[in-house]
């Protein structure tokens, strides 16, 4: 459903992505792993339309989406839980979730999806009236994922959902990610925690300084000596 063809992006003079190509098929969990600064978040920002590739194309169901502004990309069914969670700190948890459904007008269905998100993340229900900024890191991560789900995306982009979380919580988040996928949402997962990501993904791409150095089924990537050495601690 999503295809990136030879994407090049720049931050001022810095050549961040140097011809990244990848494909995400309907129903998959695809993970994009790599070390800090490899260009993982940049890839997601390019897909969402927050930065424009200088070269290359991004296609959703065969249609180019790279010329579109971010708010228009989101309306096509691609929603992102960004790096660093980016919760609206001064808005309540409920308002954050409602903003996730900003593009929708079907009130009863939004209500139902809110219930679905709260069922996934029961902790958020207790905090609905609290300001987003008062949540703990783990709760903010749940809110960021929940907020991204509120638009009923066809493709969910998750940027480092495990960052800064305790191991127990990481496990819980990954279990939820998998169950979101099982309910029919395609997922592109960016992670530094390569082991956890590879254990739930169908396919994987390994990014290094702006280029894809390895790709394949997650189990094969997990077994590859290259990845073992670089990201899994030997």
């Amino acid at each position: 459903m999503l295809v990136l063809e030879q994407i090049h992006t720049y931050y001022d003079r810095i050549h961040a992505l140097k011809g990244v190509s990848l494909t995400v098929r309907q129903g998959e969990i695809v993970t994009l792993i790599g070390s800090n600064g490899a260009g993982k978040s940049t890839t997601l920002r390019a897909i969402s339309g927050l930065i424009k590739p200088r070269l290359g194309r991004i296609l959703l169901d065969g249609q180019p989406i790279d010329p579109l502004p971010a708010h228009a990309v989101m309306r096509l069914g691609i929603s992102q839980s960004p790096e660093g969670r980016r919760i609206f700190a001064r808005l309540t948890v409920e308002e954050n979730l409602e903003l996730g459904a900003f593009t929708r007008n079907d009130k009863p269905a939004i209500r139902a999806d809110l219930e679905r998100v709260l069922a996934l993340f029961p902790r958020l229900r207790e905090r609905l009236r609290q300001r987003g900024g008062t949540l703990s890191g783990g709760e903010q991560q749940m809110l960021a994922i929940g907020r991204a789900l509120m638009s009923r995306p066809r493709l969910l982009l998750l940027d480092e959902p495990s960052m800064g979380l305790a191991p127990l919580l990481v496990e819980q988040i990954f279990r939820i990610v998998r169950s979101i996928n099982e309910q029919g949402t395609t997922i592109l997962l960016v992670e530094q925690n390569a082991h956890a990501a590879l254990s739930i993904a169908h396919r994987a791409y390994v990014l290094e300084t702006g280029t894809v150095v390895l790709e394949g089924p997650a189990s094969e990537v997990l077994a590859s000596s290259q990845v073992r050495e670089a990201y899994l601690g030997g």
Binding site: S48, G49, L50, P69, A70, H71, M74, R75, S79, Q80, P82, R86, F88, A89, R90, L91, E95, E98, L99, G100, F102, T103, R147, S151
Partner: peptide, 23 residues
């Protein structure tokens, strides 16, 4: 709803755009 979008844009424009808000 527009007021909520205003407050979101005031806090963080690019994340607001990720919500589908036309900043």
């Amino acid at each position: 709803k527009l007021g909520r979008a205003m407050r979101a844009v005031a806090e963080d424009k690019s994340t607001a755009a990720l919500m589908g808000i036309n900043v």
